Amino acid sequence: MTALPPGPDHRLHPWAPQPARPDFRWPGGKRVAAYILLHLEHTEIDPPAGTHRDPRFRGAFYSGHPDWTAYSYREYGNRIGIWRILDLLDRLKLPASVAVNLMAAQRHPEIVAACRDRGFEPVAHGISASRMVTSRMEEAEQRAHILRARDGLGAIWPGATGWLGQDHGATEATTRLLAEAGFAWSMDWANDDEPYRHASGLLALPPPGEWDDVQTLWLRRVPVTRWPALVRDALDRLLAEPRGGRVLGLGVHPWMLGAPHRIRYLAESLGDLASRAGLHVATCGALAAHARAALGGGASSAPPFAGA
């Protein structure tokens, strides 16, 4: 086996400590950008044999097979929660990207139309919330999964240039397969505050991570009353640092922050976001396009891996 250079333990992208990377600015000369990522997801009551879901969802969210509980939660978001959030975004005049899986796009033309009419941007988000990309997939199976999601969504809501794997499911082949499928960027790597390029040429846009409502409030059980402060503290710190190219994303699931007892905390965070003069707020695709231009566009120009 060929030796790897110091730092990384894979060949998906070169090791790039922060001081060695370009320090660029967002439009308007701003150092920090933010995006809002809505989730439009369908989950199957009884997924097909051989498919996999995020194993972290257990307890009250998961009741086995058929899984009426998880279906009901997500159904609430698509029936009720999404409309509260859209009203809030309208009031604040904020743009949004929408991580939409194929089955949700097929089942909810009314939500697709509402988001499209607002000028929101689709982000390909796999096939369903109950079908993750995992290392149990053969490469051909993963390629078929990506192409089915790309082509099916493109027929319903064209314009997705980026990808977010369901629950960030990915394998060693994923970044290459996404680039081969024509995607320009993805949000599966939570290892940075800044965009960077994989060896395949695919741009890695920082995903919400710590500011994804389901990961923070549901899986980590952080009290919802803490949500506005978490977002505010992160923005305060990023805006105080001299380095540019920083990104903060908010991941919003309508069944979570669209609930009547939680929406006030989302409203507080988004109001703070909208009021920050030093912050550039845009869709994920717009940020990715700007970052690709700033970083040189195509495949990574960093030195190749030793022995590659």
Rank of each mutant, 00 (worst) to 15 (best):
G159N: 10
A114S: 12
D192T: 13
M132R: 12
E121N: 02
G182F: 09
T174P: 03
A124W: 01
R118G: 11
D192L: 04
G159E: 11
R143C: 06
P122V: 07
R143T: 13
P109R: 05
M187A: 14
A160S: 15
D117M: 05
A96G: 10
A96K: 02
A129W: 12
K93M: 07
C115M: 09
R107F: 00
M132V: 01
S130M: 11
V100R: 02
Y196L: 10
Q106F: 01
G165R: 03
A96E: 04
V133A: 09
A114L: 10
I146L: 14
R143Q: 13
A124E: 11
W189D: 14
P95D: 01
L164C: 13
H125S: 11
L178D: 07
A160P: 06
E141V: 12
E121K: 01
G152V: 01
N101S: 09
A96I: 05
G162D: 12
L94V: 03
S135G: 09
R176E: 15
A96M: 08
I111Y: 03
R197Q: 13
E139P: 11
M137T: 00
Q142R: 05
D167P: 00
A149G: 10
K93I: 06
G126H: 04
A190R: 00
G126R: 02
V98C: 10
Q106S: 08
R116W: 09
G165P: 06
E172M: 09
R107V: 05
A99I: 03
E141T: 14
G159Q: 10
G126D: 10
D117W: 00
P158V: 05
G119P: 07
V123Q: 07
A149H: 05
D117S: 13
A140W: 07
L178K: 01
W163M: 11
V100E: 08
L147C: 06
A140S: 15
V98L: 05
E180Y: 03
V112P: 07
